[in-house]
Amino acid sequence: MSKKIKSFISIFALTAMVFILLFTSENATFTVNAAKDNVVIVLDPGHGGTGDRNLGAQYNGISEKEITLKVANYAKAYLESFDNVTVYMTRTTDTVVSLEDRVKFAKSVNADFMYSIHFNASVDHDLCGSEVWVSAYDKYYENGYEFASAEVAELSKLGLYIRGIKTRLGNNGDYYGIIRHARNYDVNAVIIEHCYIDHPADLAWIRSQADPYQALGIADATAIAKYFGLKSSKLSIDYSNYKNVDVKTPTRVMANDLTAPTVCTLNSAVMNKSTGDINASITASDPETPIIYYRYSFDGGKNWSYVVAWDHSKTTNTVVINDPSKSAASLTIQVYNQYDLKTTSSTISISK
C-alpha cells in the first residue's frame, strides 16, 4: 500500500467524527423517538437484474447489485432481533424492480421508513467515503436528516470517511428517483451510499473486514433501531432513550450547493530533503458546505494524487505530503467541497 493511501486511511478515521459534529452543529437540540407499537421498515437493495443501470457500479470484481442485497439481508436479520418491528425488502433476488414500484410497495405495507441501500463509484475513480442522500423538502428532509445523522455516526465507527448528509435537486424536484417518488407517495426515504468500490482507501477498508457487508448491514440496522428507539429482548439492547438530532422542518427548499469553494490558497511548501516530506500550509473554505478533501500535484495539475481527508476543524491546515523522488520543484493544491466541486490553488515553488 502506498504512503499516500496509508496517509488517507490513518487520518480519515480521526476526522470523520469531527465532520459529523460540524455538519450537525446548526441543530443543537436533540429529541427522543418513542418506539411505536410496531415499526414497519422497508429495505431497498439498489439495482438488480440485467442492463447497465440495473447492475449498478461494477469495479474490482465487485458488483453493486449483489452486495446491496447482501447488506440488506444482514440488516433485515439484525433488525428482526428487535421487538415490535416488521421488515420488508423490495427485492430478495437478482431481479429488476422499477424505482416507482419500490416506493409503491413501501406505501402498500404502510412503511414508516424506506432505506435504499447503495455503493458508489466515480468517473475518475478519485472519490471515497460514505454519504446519505435525503429529500430537500419539508418533513421528508427533517426525518431523513435525523436518521442520516445516526447512520453516518455508525459508519464512522466502522472507520469509513464521512462525505456528509446531502440533497440534490433536479428538474422535477428531488433529483434521485427513489426519493422523489417516495415524497410523492408520502413515504420517508433516504439513500445510503456506503462507500466507493473503485477507490483504494475504501477498498482497503472492505478487504480489512472479515465480512464487510455484514458489518455495514448491522451498522444500518443499528442506526434504524436507534432512530426509532427500539428494544431487543433477545439481544438485551434498549435504544428507547436514544437522542436523535432534532432538525426543524425547513421552510425553504434545502437546495444543494452549486458553487465551488471560494478559498484555496497554498501558503507555503517546505521539503525535508532527506525524507522527501513536504510541509505544506493550505487555507481553504466554502461558505455553504464543508471542505472534505484536498489533493496535490507536482507538475502544475497535469497529474494528481488520490484525495486526502481535510481536517474540518480548521480553515488553515498544515499537511505532510511525501515526494518519493525527493526532487519535486513545485506544488499545486486542489480542494473539494461536500458536493465534489473543486478549486485549485496557484502553483508555488517548494523550498528546500
Score class of each variant (00 low, 15 high):
Y242V: 02
Y242L: 06
K243G: 02
K243T: 01
K243R: 13
K243E: 15
N244S: 06
V245P: 01
V245A: 04
K248D: 13
K248T: 15
K248A: 15
T249V: 15
P250R: 09
P250M: 08
P250K: 04
P250F: 09
T251I: 06
T251Q: 13
T251H: 11
R252T: 13
R252I: 14
V253I: 15
V253F: 13
V253K: 13
M254H: 02
M254E: 15
M254R: 11
A255C: 01
N256H: 15
D257G: 06
D257L: 00
L258S: 10
A260F: 03
P261H: 02
P261N: 04
P261G: 03
T262P: 03
V263A: 06
V263Q: 07
C264S: 12
C264Q: 05
C264V: 03
C264L: 05
T265G: 02
L266P: 08
L266K: 10
N267H: 14
S268K: 05
S268L: 05
V270W: 11
M271V: 02
M271I: 07
M271T: 00
N272E: 09
N272R: 00
N272V: 02
S274C: 00
S274I: 02
S274M: 07
S274E: 12
T275I: 06
T275V: 00
G276A: 07
D277T: 02
N279V: 08
N279Q: 13
N279G: 01
A280Y: 09
A280L: 07
A280H: 07
S281E: 12
I282S: 06
T283V: 03
T283I: 01
A284D: 09
S285N: 10
S285E: 03
T289W: 03
P290H: 10
P290Q: 04
I291Q: 06
I292V: 15
I292S: 12
Y294Q: 07
Y294D: 07
Y294R: 08
R295G: 03
Y296C: 09
Y296N: 04
F298V: 05
F298M: 10
D299P: 07
G300W: 02
G300V: 07
G300M: 09
G300N: 12
G301F: 03
G301D: 11
K302R: 09
N303M: 02
N303G: 00
N303F: 05
W304K: 04
W304I: 08
W304S: 12
S305C: 07
Y306H: 10
V307G: 14
V308C: 11
V308W: 12
V308S: 15
A309L: 00
W310F: 14
D311W: 06
D311H: 04
D311E: 12
H312S: 14
H312C: 12
H312Y: 12
